[in-house]
Amino acid sequence: MAAEGAVIRRGHPLLKIDRKPLVLMYGRLPLYRQLRQGITDGPDVKQWQDDLGLPKTGRVDATQVVSAPATVRVTEAKVDVGERTGPGQGVLRVSGIRQLVHVDLDTDDQALARKGAGVTVKLPGGERIGGKITSVGTVAKSARSGQGQGQDSGETTVDVDITLNKTPRTKLDQAPVDVELESERHKDVLAVPVEALLALREGGFGVEVVEGSATRVVPVEVGVFGSGKVEISGTGLTEGMKVGVPAT
Protein backbone atom coordinates (compact mmCIF):
# COMPACT_ATOMS: atom_id res chain seq x y z
CA MET A 1 0.00 0.00 0.00
CA ALA A 2 1.29 3.45 -0.88
CA ALA A 3 2.48 5.38 2.17
CA GLU A 4 0.83 8.58 3.33
CA GLY A 5 2.41 11.50 1.48
CA ALA A 6 3.45 9.34 -1.48
CA VAL A 7 2.95 10.85 -4.95
CA ILE A 8 1.49 8.32 -7.42
CA ARG A 9 1.67 8.85 -11.17
CA ARG A 10 0.04 7.08 -14.10
CA GLY A 11 0.92 3.43 -14.45
CA HIS A 12 2.02 3.01 -10.83
CA PRO A 13 0.09 1.02 -8.20
CA LEU A 14 -1.78 2.66 -5.36
CA LEU A 15 -2.06 -0.63 -3.51
CA LYS A 16 -2.21 -4.39 -4.00
CA ILE A 17 -5.25 -6.57 -3.42
CA ASP A 18 -4.37 -10.23 -2.92
CA ARG A 19 -0.92 -9.28 -4.27
CA LYS A 20 -2.47 -7.91 -7.47
CA PRO A 21 -1.73 -4.21 -8.14
CA LEU A 22 -4.46 -1.61 -8.47
CA VAL A 23 -2.93 0.79 -11.00
CA LEU A 24 -3.61 4.50 -11.41
CA MET A 25 -4.61 5.65 -14.89
CA TYR A 26 -5.51 9.18 -15.95
CA GLY A 27 -9.09 9.98 -16.91
CA ARG A 28 -12.31 11.34 -15.47
CA LEU A 29 -14.47 8.37 -16.48
CA PRO A 30 -14.19 5.29 -14.22
CA LEU A 31 -13.81 1.92 -15.87
CA TYR A 32 -17.35 0.51 -15.93
CA ARG A 33 -16.91 -2.65 -18.02
CA GLN A 34 -14.30 -5.24 -18.80
CA LEU A 35 -11.96 -4.27 -21.62
CA ARG A 36 -10.96 -7.18 -23.82
CA GLN A 37 -10.03 -7.93 -27.37
CA GLY A 38 -12.96 -7.42 -29.76
CA ILE A 39 -15.01 -5.15 -27.51
CA THR A 40 -16.77 -2.25 -29.22
CA ASP A 41 -15.20 1.16 -28.84
CA GLY A 42 -16.50 3.53 -26.21
CA PRO A 43 -15.22 6.53 -24.24
CA ASP A 44 -13.68 4.25 -21.62
CA VAL A 45 -11.75 2.26 -24.26
CA LYS A 46 -10.50 5.43 -25.93
CA GLN A 47 -9.41 6.74 -22.55
CA TRP A 48 -7.48 3.54 -21.87
CA GLN A 49 -5.86 3.61 -25.31
CA ASP A 50 -4.87 7.26 -24.92
CA ASP A 51 -3.25 6.57 -21.57
CA LEU A 52 -1.26 3.55 -22.71
CA GLY A 53 -0.59 4.50 -26.32
CA LEU A 54 -1.27 0.87 -27.27
CA PRO A 55 -3.97 -1.06 -29.16
CA LYS A 56 -6.47 -2.86 -26.94
CA THR A 57 -5.25 -6.36 -26.18
CA GLY A 58 -5.91 -8.78 -23.35
CA ARG A 59 -8.42 -7.93 -20.64
CA VAL A 60 -8.67 -5.16 -18.09
CA ASP A 61 -11.43 -4.63 -15.53
CA ALA A 62 -12.23 -2.36 -12.59
CA THR A 63 -10.37 -4.61 -10.14
CA GLN A 64 -7.10 -3.65 -11.84
CA VAL A 65 -7.47 0.07 -12.53
CA VAL A 66 -8.51 3.22 -10.70
CA SER A 67 -8.99 6.50 -12.58
CA ALA A 68 -8.08 10.03 -11.54
CA PRO A 69 -7.74 13.23 -13.60
CA ALA A 70 -4.03 13.56 -12.83
CA THR A 71 -1.22 12.62 -10.45
CA VAL A 72 -2.38 12.14 -6.85
CA ARG A 73 -0.90 12.33 -3.37
CA VAL A 74 -1.92 9.84 -0.67
CA THR A 75 -3.27 11.82 2.28
CA GLU A 76 -4.61 9.00 4.45
CA ALA A 77 -4.43 5.22 4.67
CA LYS A 78 -7.71 3.97 6.12
CA VAL A 79 -6.71 0.32 6.55
CA ASP A 80 -3.57 -1.53 7.58
CA VAL A 81 -1.63 -3.92 5.38
CA GLY A 82 -3.24 -7.35 5.59
CA GLU A 83 -6.56 -6.04 6.87
CA ARG A 84 -9.72 -7.39 5.27
CA THR A 85 -12.03 -4.95 3.52
CA GLY A 86 -15.60 -5.08 2.32
CA PRO A 87 -17.71 -3.52 -0.45
CA GLY A 88 -17.96 0.24 -0.08
CA GLN A 89 -15.21 0.45 2.52
CA GLY A 90 -12.70 3.25 1.99
CA VAL A 91 -9.07 2.19 1.72
CA LEU A 92 -7.11 5.28 0.72
CA ARG A 93 -7.81 8.99 0.60
CA VAL A 94 -5.97 10.94 -2.09
CA SER A 95 -5.74 14.53 -3.26
CA GLY A 96 -4.20 16.40 -6.15
CA ILE A 97 -0.57 17.46 -5.88
CA ARG A 98 -1.27 21.16 -6.38
CA GLN A 99 -1.24 22.88 -3.00
CA LEU A 100 -4.60 24.36 -2.15
CA VAL A 101 -5.88 26.47 0.73
CA HIS A 102 -9.50 25.94 1.74
CA VAL A 103 -11.45 28.49 3.78
CA ASP A 104 -14.85 28.05 5.40
CA LEU A 105 -15.73 31.73 5.09
CA ASP A 106 -18.47 33.25 7.21
CA THR A 107 -21.32 34.31 4.94
CA ASP A 108 -21.16 37.80 6.49
CA ASP A 109 -17.74 38.16 4.83
CA GLN A 110 -18.69 36.59 1.50
CA ALA A 111 -18.41 39.94 -0.31
CA LEU A 112 -14.66 39.93 0.44
CA ALA A 113 -14.11 36.77 -1.62
CA ARG A 114 -14.07 37.42 -5.35
CA LYS A 115 -12.90 34.83 -7.84
CA GLY A 116 -9.51 35.87 -9.21
CA ALA A 117 -8.79 38.27 -6.33
CA GLY A 118 -5.38 38.20 -4.69
CA VAL A 119 -4.91 37.16 -1.05
CA THR A 120 -2.07 36.73 1.40
CA VAL A 121 -1.64 33.41 3.21
CA LYS A 122 0.32 33.23 6.45
CA LEU A 123 1.72 29.76 7.12
CA PRO A 124 2.81 28.25 10.43
CA GLY A 125 6.26 29.58 11.22
CA GLY A 126 5.46 33.05 9.88
CA GLU A 127 6.04 32.53 6.15
CA ARG A 128 3.78 34.75 4.04
CA ILE A 129 2.92 33.91 0.44
CA GLY A 130 0.56 35.35 -2.14
CA GLY A 131 -2.34 33.44 -3.60
CA LYS A 132 -5.41 33.77 -5.79
CA ILE A 133 -9.03 32.83 -5.14
CA THR A 134 -9.97 30.14 -7.65
CA SER A 135 -13.50 29.31 -6.53
CA VAL A 136 -16.19 30.70 -4.25
CA GLY A 137 -19.10 28.52 -3.18
CA THR A 138 -22.64 29.65 -3.86
CA VAL A 139 -24.38 27.42 -1.31
CA ALA A 140 -24.15 28.26 2.39
CA LYS A 141 -23.67 25.44 4.88
CA SER A 142 -23.99 25.26 8.64
CA ALA A 143 -20.76 25.49 10.60
CA ARG A 144 -20.14 22.76 13.16
CA SER A 145 -18.82 23.18 16.67
CA GLY A 146 -18.50 21.25 19.87
CA GLN A 147 -17.13 17.81 20.62
CA GLY A 148 -16.81 15.75 17.46
CA GLN A 149 -17.91 18.75 15.38
CA GLY A 150 -21.43 17.39 15.58
CA GLN A 151 -23.29 20.43 16.89
CA ASP A 152 -24.65 23.24 14.75
CA SER A 153 -22.94 26.48 15.82
CA GLY A 154 -25.69 28.64 14.31
CA GLU A 155 -23.22 30.20 11.85
CA THR A 156 -23.18 29.64 8.10
CA THR A 157 -20.17 29.52 5.80
CA VAL A 158 -19.32 29.22 2.11
CA ASP A 159 -16.42 27.29 0.60
CA VAL A 160 -13.51 29.35 -0.75
CA ASP A 161 -10.52 27.72 -2.47
CA ILE A 162 -7.18 29.46 -2.98
CA THR A 163 -4.14 28.46 -5.03
CA LEU A 164 -0.69 29.67 -4.02
CA ASN A 165 1.45 31.75 -6.38
CA LYS A 166 4.54 29.66 -5.65
CA THR A 167 5.64 26.62 -3.70
CA PRO A 168 6.15 27.63 -0.06
CA ARG A 169 9.27 26.77 1.89
CA THR A 170 7.04 25.36 4.62
CA LYS A 171 6.34 21.68 3.89
CA LEU A 172 2.97 21.04 5.51
CA ASP A 173 -0.19 19.13 4.65
CA GLN A 174 -3.62 20.02 6.06
CA ALA A 175 -2.07 22.63 8.35
CA PRO A 176 -4.07 25.60 9.71
CA VAL A 177 -3.21 28.93 8.06
CA ASP A 178 -4.33 32.55 8.25
CA VAL A 179 -5.74 34.16 5.10
CA GLU A 180 -5.88 37.92 4.54
CA LEU A 181 -8.65 39.03 2.17
CA GLU A 182 -8.63 42.47 0.59
CA SER A 183 -11.75 44.52 1.32
CA GLU A 184 -10.69 47.59 -0.66
CA ARG A 185 -7.54 49.12 -2.14
CA HIS A 186 -6.29 52.70 -1.71
CA LYS A 187 -3.31 53.83 -3.78
CA ASP A 188 -0.76 56.60 -3.10
CA VAL A 189 -1.66 57.10 0.56
CA LEU A 190 0.37 57.63 3.72
CA ALA A 191 0.46 54.67 6.09
CA VAL A 192 1.99 54.00 9.50
CA PRO A 193 2.11 50.96 11.80
CA VAL A 194 -1.14 50.57 13.70
CA GLU A 195 0.88 50.82 16.92
CA ALA A 196 1.77 54.43 16.02
CA LEU A 197 -1.82 55.62 16.55
CA LEU A 198 -2.43 57.62 19.72
CA ALA A 199 -5.89 58.12 21.23
CA LEU A 200 -6.32 61.87 21.76
CA ARG A 201 -7.98 63.27 24.89
CA GLU A 202 -10.28 65.45 22.78
CA GLY A 203 -11.25 62.43 20.68
CA GLY A 204 -9.92 60.92 17.51
CA PHE A 205 -6.37 59.82 16.80
CA GLY A 206 -2.95 61.30 16.30
CA VAL A 207 0.62 60.25 15.63
CA GLU A 208 3.83 61.33 17.31
CA VAL A 209 6.09 62.89 14.67
CA VAL A 210 9.81 62.61 15.49
CA GLU A 211 12.01 65.49 14.29
CA GLY A 212 15.55 65.00 15.55
CA SER A 213 15.43 65.15 19.35
CA ALA A 214 12.00 66.82 19.36
CA THR A 215 8.55 65.28 18.97
CA ARG A 216 5.07 66.63 18.35
CA VAL A 217 1.64 65.06 18.13
CA VAL A 218 -0.27 65.59 14.89
CA PRO A 219 -4.03 64.83 14.72
CA VAL A 220 -4.88 62.43 11.88
CA GLU A 221 -7.84 60.92 10.10
CA VAL A 222 -7.59 57.16 9.72
CA GLY A 223 -8.55 55.16 6.65
CA VAL A 224 -8.28 51.47 5.84
CA PHE A 225 -6.34 48.94 7.89
CA GLY A 226 -4.28 46.08 6.46
CA SER A 227 -1.15 44.00 7.09
CA GLY A 228 -0.45 45.76 10.38
CA LYS A 229 -0.64 49.27 8.92
CA VAL A 230 -3.26 51.99 8.76
CA GLU A 231 -3.91 54.75 6.25
CA ILE A 232 -3.63 58.27 7.72
CA SER A 233 -4.11 61.83 6.50
CA GLY A 234 -3.60 65.16 8.23
CA THR A 235 -2.19 68.67 7.96
CA GLY A 236 1.57 68.79 7.64
CA LEU A 237 2.11 65.07 7.09
CA THR A 238 4.52 64.10 4.32
CA GLU A 239 6.07 60.92 3.03
CA GLY A 240 9.26 59.95 4.85
CA MET A 241 8.38 61.48 8.22
CA LYS A 242 9.37 59.42 11.25
CA VAL A 243 6.67 58.48 13.75
CA GLY A 244 7.01 57.05 17.22
CA VAL A 245 5.84 53.56 18.17
CA PRO A 246 5.81 51.89 21.59
CA ALA A 247 8.99 50.04 22.51
CA THR A 248 8.67 46.25 22.43
Rank of each mutant, 00 (worst) to 15 (best):
Q89L: 09
A70H: 15
T71H: 07
V72K: 02
T63P: 10
K78R: 15
V103N: 05
R59C: 05
G58T: 04
T75L: 04
V74T: 04
V74L: 05
D104A: 13
L100V: 13
R93W: 11
V72F: 04
V66P: 09
I97S: 08
V79T: 03
R98E: 15
V81F: 05
G82N: 06
V72E: 04
P87D: 04
G88C: 02
T75G: 10
V60Q: 07
S67H: 15
T75R: 12
Q99A: 12
V74G: 03
Q99L: 14
Q99I: 06
G96M: 03
T85Q: 02
K78N: 10
V66D: 08
R98K: 14
G90N: 15
G90P: 10
A77S: 13
Q99N: 12
L100A: 13
V91A: 04
G86T: 11
S67R: 14
V101H: 00
T85M: 09
E83G: 04
V60M: 07
G96I: 00
D80L: 13
V66Q: 03
G90M: 08
P87S: 06
R73M: 12
V72Q: 07
R59N: 08
P69S: 06
V60W: 06
V72N: 04
Q89C: 00
S95A: 15
V65P: 02
V103I: 14
V91F: 01
S67Q: 15
V74I: 10
A70S: 13
G58Q: 00
K56C: 14
R98G: 12
R98L: 14
A68E: 00
G88T: 01
R98P: 03
P69I: 01
V79R: 02
P69N: 03
T63H: 11
A68I: 01
P69C: 05
R98H: 11
R84K: 13
V91S: 06
R98C: 07
V79H: 00
V94M: 08
V60A: 03
R93E: 15
V72Y: 00
V74S: 01
T63Q: 14
V101W: 09
G88I: 05
T85G: 14
V65H: 03
G88V: 05
V101C: 02
T85C: 05
A77N: 11
V91T: 08
V66N: 03
K56R: 15
E76D: 10
S67E: 10
H102L: 11
R73I: 09
V81L: 09
R59F: 12
V91R: 00
L100T: 13
L100D: 14
R84L: 10
V66L: 05
T75M: 13
K78D: 10
Q89G: 07
P69V: 00
T71M: 05
D61C: 02
G86F: 05
Q64Y: 01
A70R: 14
V81Y: 08
L92M: 06
D61N: 15
V103Y: 10
H102Q: 15
D61G: 06
V66R: 01
Q64P: 04
L100N: 12
A77R: 13
D80F: 11
G88L: 04
